[in-house]
Nucleic acid binder design. Structure first.
Ligand SMILES: [Mn+2]
Ligand SMILES: [Mn+2]
Ligand SMILES: [Zn+2]
Ligand SMILES: [Zn+2]
Lengths: 138, 138
DNA sequence: AGCGTTCATGGGAATCATTCTCACATAGGT
DNA sequence: ACCTATGTGAGAATGATTCCCATGAACGCT
């Protein structure tokens, strides 16, 4: 049902920078902007050029290892995710994210698209809210 | 369930420009970018400043008369929509859009959020595909 | 280890949608 | 007609993302 991930096998020459980006993402559980990730890398000492951060993220996205989300302001946020198809429950305040699945909506999307003569169907479903930690703080 | 639309009653001084934007949207059935709408207004003769197009669209969005969608490139697209809560089936090629509803997913989103302790829940669900007209052309 | 080829990096310029500024126009009430 | 609050528009400013290109690092070969 999900896209073939045709670019998944692309060989890339390993580099300290790419590893640093992936390692950073592994230690975070929420969606973060490229700018944020770049700043975090600097603090951590693993300095990486901003352009390289964007390139690394794009490569990971193409490879299906990272998910992207567009905020209301249009800024992209990235998160290390499981490779299968899923959706997200995201905290608007801190970005904390839970991966969720909803089989019924998968069928619904396919059916409603077919009913209207649409082919090549994709869908996106995200749930936003305030997590309990953030609600406690105010 | 949907947001209170608190700004809905804001009084705004009428203007030729605002009317032109709304009239243009009424004659279109797909999502269009602000830049596109601005260009269309110029062609049509109702010239309106780009900043004013953005202001008019933002006002309509705040008023709940227009929906916004963020494309993969982060560019915002706008469409005159019915005021109630709904989702969209959008053609990736021409933007043609059908409004759709899915009551089950409404309940599902509320439940899954509650199960994880999230409050102040919103969700967004969009379906993308290629409409029959565009599929016919190739 | 040395060398050449190929690909990755990074800093800064370029892009581009969107927002801001502010001088000017205009709607509406007097 | 006149006043005042608000809308407009041209261009500047903003800010995320991408592009450019000279430099650096990885790989394959010797
Ligand atoms: Mn799904
Ligand atoms: Mn819904
Ligand atoms: Zn939170
Ligand atoms: Zn179409």
């Amino acid at each position: 049902m999900s896209l073939p991930d045709q670019a998944e096998g692309t060989t890339r020459r390993p580099s300290r920078q790419r590893s640093a980006v992936l390692a950073l993402l592994d230690g975070l559980d929420g969606f973060r902007s490229a700018q944020d990730l770049h700043a975090l890398l600097r603090q951590r000492g693993d300095s990486v050029g901003l352009a390289t951060v964007y390139r690394a993220l794009q490569a990971l996205v193409d490879d299906g290892q990272v998910d992207v989300l567009r905020g209301d302001d249009g800024e992209a946020s990235y998160r290390r995710c499981s490779t299968g198809h899923h959706h997200h429950l995201v905290c608007r305040s801190c970005g904390r994210t839970v991966e969720v699945a909803d089989p019924p909506v998968e069928r619904w999307a396919a059916r409603v698209a077919a009913e209207h003569g649409f082919a090549d169907v994709q869908h996106q479903l995200e749930v936003f809210g305030i997590c309990s930690d953030c609600a406690a703080r105010g």
